[in-house]
Design a binder for these strands. Structure first.
Lengths: 144, 144
DNA sequence: ATACGAATTAGAGCGCACTCTAAGTCAAGG
DNA sequence: CCTTGACTTAGAGTGCGCTCTAATTCGTAT
């Protein structure tokens, strides 16, 4: 399979595939006689897995650590598991924050819906409106 | 309240507060005689709300649309609600994808856990290992 | 008086994850 | 033969959301 075909099948662009190879997320691909990459379908499983890591927001630097361990193969299972577990736990926390925010948002939307035509300059309708310890972002998101 | 105090209370850095004002996310703040920003505590409610939008991953350009409508005040409720609803729906979809990925990840982690010392070069342990339509990222994430 | 800390501005820089350009090679079809 | 289109490389550019620098001005404490 050449890169165009892999791009179609994986959903990544050819640019991204080359980029991933460059940085080490994808293993260096064999080239044919005219130095074009020739892929085995098995790479799709790895790309699919990477896609999942991306969906859950794992930074590329962590995927790289994982990819490096995977290349080393046997004996690296524990470390790989740890990477996965750590990120999973971060995601669970983030997902909970997300749900909390969605809940508040729904209340606000309901507020707007219940107002239809009227409403003054209130930006925060009926419910909620104490407010003291402000701030919602998670530790890993904040940079300082 | 000066910017340092607001920074502490809001969790944003002073840099970020100035940046938000610059781009229009925060209203232009009154300055005192020595042109230092002087904030009213009420701004915290707005910042808290922005924090929530950020937590749910709303891009700044959408927050800006919302902020502009809010500045215009009365008569913009419907549009504001639409912005919120649209993003909420996107987030719900993303959250579902997240859950699906977490599930698969948990299976994989369990696989590693159940292997402890052994395991060959399998990167994808016991369960799963068909694989055909690859690709997990959501429409808004993909750029092509 | 002066030193300190906290603020101001314009604008540069950063980290991330791509995304694209330019210039060139190559195989297959008309 | 020659065009077409898919590929190759190195490296530049993009969009996002901050984050920081430099130079300067204040108000306050010693």
């Amino acid at each position: 399979m050449k890169i165009g075909e892999l791009a179609k099948r994986s959903g990544l662009s050819a640019y991204t595939i080359r980029y991933y190879e460059r940085i080490g997320l994808l293993p260096y691909a064999d080239r044919d006689q005219s130095s074009q990459r020739d892929y085995d379908a098995s790479i799709l499983i790895w790309i699919e897995f990477l896609g999942r890591l991306r969906t859950i927001g794992m930074p590329i630097r962590d995927m790289l650590r994982y990819a490096a361990l995977r290349e080393r193969g046997v004996g690296t299972e524990m470390e790989r598991r740890e990477i996965l577990e750590q990120h999973r736990d971060r995601v669970r926390i983030h997902a909970a924050e997300l749900q909390a925010c969605l809940l508040v948002l729904d209340t606000k939307i309901a507020g707007y819906a219940g107002q239809e035509q009227r409403m003054k300059d209130y930006d925060t309708p009926p419910p909620e409106r104490r407010g003291k310890p402000v701030g919602t972002r998670s530790a890993r998101t904040r940079g300082h």
